[in-house]
């Protein structure tokens, strides 16, 4: 495992911890999109079907379990927790997330590395992850006061994507046989979606003012 990959996994982990911290200690999910969180839970459920079939390493198994548990518990908190659910910004979280699940599934049936159940679900999870952030970005744009933790959550999630691309570039030169075009192309699309957010995040950080995205 190279440093970019490790740093990518760690920023991904930090993003989840930041979100859980906000939900668990502040008991608030204001500014957090439930739709995006539901999509991530689906992404991990579909991708980690191989959890008990295909063993890679202890690190891999533990991280998969962490991402599965954290994504489902975040959804649970936002839907079921007495206090947290009241802070959910339902009126602004209006992205029709169900309508992006089906196209991703169709795309996975058409473009996959092999036409087997697990491979199709893997491709589906890759396509879905690429667009899962959209409801969150839309919600951020509609939120007047983006709190620091929500901004940091999206920032770390975006950093994870950028680091994964550097990891693929590194792997391309060090392990030329290791190529997953599906995840590379979907990963680049996903990272581009963050570009706008990153631009405003860095400006607000440089000028030391509160993050606000233009409508």
């Amino acid at each position: 495992m190279n440093l970019f990959r490790l740093a990518g996994d760690m920023t991904h982990l930090v993003s989840v911890v930041v979100l859980l911290l906000k939900i668990h200690t502040i008991k608030s999910c204001a500014g957090v999109s439930l739709k995006t969180q539901e999509l991530y839970a689906l992404v991990f459920a579909a991708r980690y079907l191989d959890l008990f079939v295909h063993f890679v390493s202890l690190y891999n198994t533990v991280m998969k379990l962490v991402f599965l548990a954290s994504s489902f518990s975040i959804v649970w908190y936002m839907r079921k927790h007495k206090i947290v659910r009241r802070t959910y910004d339902r009126e602004h979280d209006t992205f029709r997330h169900h309508f992006i699940v089906l196209p991703c599934l169709v795309l996975a049936l058409l473009i996959n590395e092999r036409f087997t159940f697990r491979e199709v679900m893997w491709a589906f999870s890759i396509y879905l992850e690429a667009v899962a952030i959209l409801p969150q970005l839309v919600l951020l744009q509609r939120t007047r006061n983006i709190d620091n933790l929500t901004g940091q959550y999206v920032f770390f999630l975006g950093a994870y994507r950028v680091l994964y691309i550097l990891n693929w570039i590194y792997r391309y030169f060090t392990e030329p046989h290791f190529v997953h075009w599906i995840s590379w192309i979907a990963g680049i699309v996903q990272t581009v979606l963050y570009a706008d957010f990153f631009y405003y995040y860095i400006i607000s950080w440089k000028n030391n003012v509160k993050l606000e995205l233009p409508a």
């Binding site: 990959r5 996994d9 991904h12 191989d50 295909h54 890679v56 390493s57 891999n60 991280m63 998969k64 991402f67 590395e113 092999r114 491979e119 893997w122 994964y164 990891n167 046989h177 290791f178 190529v179 997953h180 075009w181 995840s183």
Partner: peptide, 10 residues
């Protein structure tokens, strides 16, 4: 081919 590569990323 890429199809035979094991998937070791998260």
């Amino acid at each position: 081919s890429s199809g035979s590569n094991p998937k070791d990323e998260l």
